[in-house]
Design a protein around this nucleic acid. Structure first.
Lengths: 217, 217
DNA sequence: TGTACATCAGTGAACGCGCGTTCACTGATGTAC
DNA sequence: TGTACATCAGTGAACGCGCGTTCACTGATGTAC
């Protein structure tokens, strides 16, 4: 079936329901173990066992270990892109103010990182040595950043900055960097002071609004 | 020599100048290769060759591969701590304003990350699986954060925020997170817009000053 | 509906490669007299 | 200053363990008639 092959780079398409289930369980196991201890530290045997499958079944579905990781990553990218498209859709925020959008979006991203942070971290680590992972990471991040920035640029009249395009781009970067590092390095912490999720969201929102010169009530 | 042993956890103390030189070259090679491709992806044989030494010489100095990494990390931590102590010394900034300190410190940290970023990244990756690396990372980061925050808290009258302690702590975190992620993920970039070192410094400084409610000229 | 056969799916022991570590040996440096 | 010996330093081939991958085999599912 050459037609189907065009869409399936890493996965050998299953012919029966049974094997599709096995495949899904392998993907889930990879996501779970990868999040827990990193992909490099997870063995194929461990992965197969965790999925209630076997090493041979694994290689019947994937060309090699990398094939599985790529499949897991693709599944994640698809989910992430879809989520971003829905939650950052301009229509959805019709009539909303910059503070309103900012605070909701920041809170949402924080909650996502709380959920998927460990998995994202595993992808990031992998990206350090694998250019193809790195490239896809950047594509996703560019996509999300652009959608977020667009929401703010549309409302440039609420901002008090020289170059709204550039300032919003930087604000988005601030958000991404701060949340990312808070997850990558555990809870935000400076000496004895800690910033749990809610406070992180509030403070980060405040910082960005002030930076963009937005009047807040 | 039991007295010397107390200070040398991972390194077997050399008895001749010759072996001290070998040891230094091994440390340098580890830092270099680790920065270039990560510690996990660097083999002992490769390391020894790169240092103009041999595998046997390596094991005469270090108990194992981890011993070397720990030694490299300790050397880095010592340098970093000393640099922070000197550059964030309160006396050094006697009479300076918050914007002055902020802009200089941010610029300095960016330049450090430009220099040592790859090595720092290797340590961070290692920290993901090694709790002892992680713990030392946090100790260093706490130390630097505290010193920075202290400079701003001392000048709380220049700030316009409810809780100066907390706000400065968060500002310091913003700085660290943004610079860190800009190095960990390459140059800052949002779609077509890029923020090279100087612009990153300027914009990050501006963001923090506005967040802290500092009047700028 | 039942039977024969082909293909798909799954199993886990065995293989082999890469890399950390060891070890028997050679050469260099230091010390005693 | 020279000689004998001890210790330090360095070498690189060989070993062995862990883990990705293969493969000969068993069982399950689908198809033809």
């Amino acid at each position: 079936m050459p037609a189907a092959d065009r869409n399936l780079q890493w996965i050998k398409p299953p012919q029966q329901v049974r094997s599709q289930e096995t495949l899904d369980r392998l993907l889930d196991a990879a996501a779970e173990l990868g999040a827990a201890k990193g992909f490099a530290n997870t063995t194929v045997a461990e992965l197969a066992r965790h999925a209630g499958s076997s090493v041979g079944a694994f290689y019947a579905r994937f060309s090699d270990k990398d094939g599985l990781l790529n499949a897991v990553y693709d599944r994640y990218l698809e989910e992430a892109t879809a989520t971003a498209d829905v939650s950052l859709d301009p229509d959805r925020w019709e009539g909303a103010s910059v503070p309103e959008i900012m605070s909701n979006v920041v809170r949402f991203i924080v909650s996502i990182y709380r959920d998927k942070g460990e998995l994202i971290r595993a992808f990031v680590v992998r990206g350090h040595t694998d250019p193809s992972f790195r490239a896809r990471q950047e594509r996703l991040s560019d996509h999300i950043h652009a959608k977020m920035a667009a929401l703010f640029v549309e409302r440039a009249d609420e901002l008090d900055v020289r170059d709204p395009e550039r300032a919003t781009a930087f604000a988005v970067t601030l958000i991404a960097a701060t949340i990312e590092s808070s997850v990558l390095f555990g809870e935000l912490r400076t000496g004895a002071l800690t910033f749990p999720d809610e406070e992180l969201s509030v403070e980060l929102t405040r910082a960005c609004l002030r930076y963009l010169g937005v009047q807040t009530p």
